[in-house]
Design a protein around this nucleic acid. Structure first.
Length: 221
DNA sequence: GCGACAG
DNA sequence: ATCTTGTCGC
């Protein structure tokens, strides 16, 4: 697929934060998803050689049967450090390399990390969604910002994730007996819809099949 | 100033 | 994220 929008990735920390503050105004948190959804993609990252090499993986699954339809892997030199709040500047460049190789344009993308549940409401899922002008959802394994009440130990139950008096996402129980995952709108997807799709993509394990497959791909040669 | 802190 | 053996549980 083609990437419709670009911007520099060689930025200072101050420039990156300024760019986030500019881009966050463009994020859409209402549903603008092509229907019907036939393909859902998962993206994930891996690192080699002490982190100097980034490995991006994209897995496109059919929906709702969740069968691997197509995948791509890309490797490139890591050019930005891991800084909480600036994850997208470290991971998106390689992800775009992998996405460019994909022939099947997905209808929805599930990202590893936060969407708007972010200090400036521009986590990696939102940032990627804006660059691709595509619906994205943030699925994080741990918290970056916000607080929530205890989530009942029942699959599908959730609690709103609150940050500065605002609901920025949800702590969702995708499997009994495991820690909840943190869901938030990336771009062009509302929170209720995001929760719905994440559950539909998570038939058995704690994480969605999309990210589980992308994760394996980002680790195997 | 002191903690917290996606992957 | 990555470095790593065994171990608890279904």
């Amino acid at each position: 697929m083609k990437i419709p929008r670009h911007h520099s990735w060689s930025l200072t920390v101050a420039e990156a934060i300024a760019l986030q503050e500019k881009l966050t105004k463009e994020v859409i948190t209402i549903d603008k998803i092509p229907q019907p959804v036939q393909y859902v993609a998962g993206v994930d990252m891996g690192f080699e050689s002490s982190g100097t090499i980034s490995r991006a993986a994209v897995a496109v699954l059919s929906f709702p049967d969740l069968q691997l339809h197509e995948y791509a892997i890309a490797r490139r030199t890591t050019s930005f450090p891991y800084i909480p709040g600036l994850l997208s500047f470290r991971e998106i460049p390689a992800l775009l390399d992998a996405l460019e190789k994909i022939n099947t344009t997905p209808d929805l993308i599930l990202c590893d990390g936060q969407g708007i549940a972010h200090p400036r409401r521009l986590g990696i899922a939102s940032h990627l969604g804006l660059i691709l002008d595509m619906p994205t959802i943030g699925v994080a394994k741990s918290l970056l910002v916000g607080k929530h009440e205890e989530v009942p130990n029942i699959k599908g139950s959730w609690q709103p994730l609150i940050h500065r008096q605002e609901t920025v996402g949800a702590a969702l129980r995708t499997r009994v007996g495991t820690k909840p995952v943190y869901i938030s709108s990336g771009h062009r997807v509302s929170l209720p819809t995001a929760i719905d799709y994440v559950l539909q993509c998570t038939p058995k394990y704690r994480l969605p099949e999309t990210t589980r497959i992308a994760d394996k791909l980002s680790k195997s040669d």
